[in-house]
């Protein structure tokens, strides 16, 4: 009963609810301000600028930063995404197949490739496979190698996303298509998949963001100067100049792509929510 506490329970403090809230918020701001001030006072600003933000070194990075490194990062990522999407599509359909062995194979693939570090798969594709099968040539050389490695990693995640998207399409859609005379395959292609892809566009874009970052693993494959992407490029120039500015600049290049993509995802999600209502 709400009224009883005035009579039975003594008031512990003399503060009203508004006062308590103000006190709590004030304490949180005080901690934050103290931390910022402590950092500003203790940091050696001159040295930090010298190490991370030397305009001279940053200028040296151009134009290769854009024409080689950023271009290659985008190329590796997109080719890996295409391979992953195609493979993920096949695995998702296998996962939903009425044929048992297909389902098991797809399940095993997904569990293995989601459970392994991406780096291990890069080494396997880049070093293990060429050693084991000396006659095998990746189409497109290093580009093909990276596309396969990134594709293998992302396919496992995308397969699960695509499967979830297909299953999120209401059962009545398939029934309506079948009762109009669509074959199962044709109903899947014309009716179910277009709706499923609309549903999974945000998570797929998220996967693209993850791939942008994973493309940095090319660092561990031997690549020529012309094949370097952002991380390798930044790392190389950092050691050449004995300065961290290239790392910072390379990092900004990633953010230049990933932050707008994330904003697009967020916009798509709110739009999708509004449509469902």
């Amino acid at each position: 009963m709400a009224d009883t506490d005035t009579g039975i329970q003594p008031k512990r403090t003399g503060l009203t609810r508004t006062q308590k809230r103000r006190l709590s918020r004030g304490a949180q701001y005080a901690v934050l301000a103290a931390a910022v001030i402590a950092f500003a006072l203790t940091a050696d600003w001159g040295r930090l600028q010298n190490q991370f933000a030397q305009p001279g070194i940053a200028k040296q990075l151009f134009p290769d930063l854009i024409t080689v490194a950023l271009k290659n990062t985008v190329l590796y990522t997109l080719s890996g995404f295409v391979v992953g999407l195609a493979l993920g599509m096949v695995i998702a359909l296998m996962r939903l197949s009425s044929v048992g062995p297909y389902r098991w194979l797809a399940g095993i693939y997904i569990e293995i490739f989601r459970g392994l570090p991406a780096l291990l798969i890069f080494i396997f594709v880049g070093v293990g496979v060429p050693l084991a099968f000396p006659t095998v040539q990746y189409p497109g050389g290093t580009y093909g190698k990276v596309a396969v490695a990134l594709g293998l990693v992302s396919a496992a995640y995308m397969a699960e996303t695509i499967r979830a998207g297909i299953q999120a399409v209401p059962k009545g859609q398939m029934e309506a298509a079948r009762s109009l005379g669509f074959s199962p395959a044709r109903a899947m292609v014309s009716i179910i998949l277009p709706q499923a892809f609309r549903i999974i566009l945000p998570p797929l874009t998220n996967e693209l963001v993850l791939l942008f970052k994973d493309s940095s693993l090319v660092l561990f494959l031997g690549v020529t100067l012309e094949q370097r992407e952002l991380s390798k490029f930044g790392n190389d120039l950092a050691s050449q100049t004995a300065n961290s500015t290239p790392i910072l600049v390379a990092g900004l290049c990633y953010l230049l792509i990933t932050i707008p993509l994330s904003l697009v995802v967020r916009r798509m999600e709110t739009k999708a929510l509004r449509e469902i209502r």
């Binding site: 009545g172 298509a177 009762s179 109009l180 005379g181 709706q195």
Partner: peptide, 20 residues
Amino acid sequence: IDAVRRRIGMVFQQFNLFPH
């Protein structure tokens, strides 16, 4: 069955129009 179903129209409680 696909050929037979072409001759049978079906209308559902939940309409099941294709929203896309």
